[in-house]
Design a protein around this nucleic acid. Sequence first.
DNA 1: AATGAAATTACGCTGCG
DNA 2: CGCAGCGTAATTTCATT
Lengths: 148, 148
Amino acid sequence: MSDDLADSIDLELLQLLSRDGRATYSEMASRVGLSVAAVKRRVDRLQSVGVITGFTVEIDRTKLGWTVETFTEVRYSGSADSDEMIQVMKGVEEVESVYTIAGDPDILVKINARDHGHLQQVINRLRRGGQAIGTKSMIVLSSWHRGS
Amino acid sequence: MSDDLADSIDLELLQLLSRDGRATYSEMASRVGLSVAAVKRRVDRLQSVGVITGFTVEIDRTKLGWTVETFTEVRYSGSADSDEMIQVMKGVEEVESVYTIAGDPDILVKINARDHGHLQQVINRLRRGGQAIGTKSMIVLSSWHRGS
DNA sequence: AATGAAATTACGCTGCG
DNA sequence: CGCAGCGTAATTTCATT
């Protein structure tokens, strides 16, 4: 858990990749003052040690007609199996992320839906699939992410 | 709000890029059955119309010594300026995302901190910076994201 | 152990049909 | 959208500190 997994140049590279996940090694190399090969080796290493877990695209789902975005808190009975609840969440395709929480609620789920009716269906599936005893949805009006 | 911004091939490309944001056009082309040039034109178009808002790297911050991750609900007084509150949040570098919420709470903030002491400092900054009347933090124990 | 330079392979990009 | 050509980048190899 101590961390010599990334020196200051690695952190620079991570920042560059945060801003542009498709940046070329040439671009990064000229920015950090290393050769292309050195930069590639560092990025490969960051992946192999698990600091970098992947690369992805950022999508504006509202432009695709998915206008409803929520964080939904889920609570379940003490007898419910936590892992089973999580499996239920993962099985619902509208669920983008699942967070297990210390305390209350038990789970926080990020959901994307086309409209309110669709959201209702999704939440019903979450409730029926497991032993959820309650949900509370926070509908997102706007969002901001660092470095976008 | 109707959407002809992405046909089924575009959706395929978005899915491929979700799984690997650095996938080459060649890889994608062979998967969707189009030429490399056609795929590049489609991806460029998806960017220009705003469906694709960017590309980024996924980082396991626990490997960098940032072990505490929270969703923190923020409530502020009715007289507080919502935009000003958001600006305060953005100004705190440990804040990764800010979501404005319909109803209660007013804002949901995703925070990354090195440890609990650090988290406490961050929350104090959030409270002092604006007119927050209360915060409630949900500490993340584990998380899952679709397609990782 | 990490780097830079060079050579090969693969890919990105553009214009044209 | 596909094809073809040229420029650029990725990737491996080798030598160096």
